[in-house]
Amino acid sequence: MNTVIFRTAAPYLTALMVVFSIFILLRGHNDPGGGFIGGLIAASAFAIYGIANGVAPVRRALYFHPITLAGFGLFLAGLAGIPSLFAGVPFLTGLWTFPHVFGVEVALSTPLVFDIGVYFVVVGAITAIALTLEERHEN
């Protein structure tokens, strides 16, 4: 799999896939998509990058250890339940706000934070597994 074409194309492909995954994540509430699928796409992106160029560049590019990302995601998802505590509604009840930024209505909500958390858990856990496996392959 170490062809020049693949190695050259992989970074662009990865970048594209990561951007696409974020797009999928954010549109998920109304159209097919969401944190889980988005996370899987991003995880495949990093797996591809790893297969093409080795694990070390992926780890450098990610900066954080992937499992840390997963932990952060879980933390974020849990955090999304906290505001409901103060609103006096059951844990994880969705709370919405629609502020106008430069005249455009933006829908912000705790389910969005929660979904981003799901995204990070999926990306982190699967990338962590894939990279560890690829690392052993290189050895």
Partner: peptide
């Protein structure tokens, strides 16, 4: 839940 995608709304909300 302000979402049209039922699957996602079930998952996150």
């Amino acid at each position: 839940a302000h979402g049209r995608n039922i699957v996602n709304v079930i998952i996150v909300d």
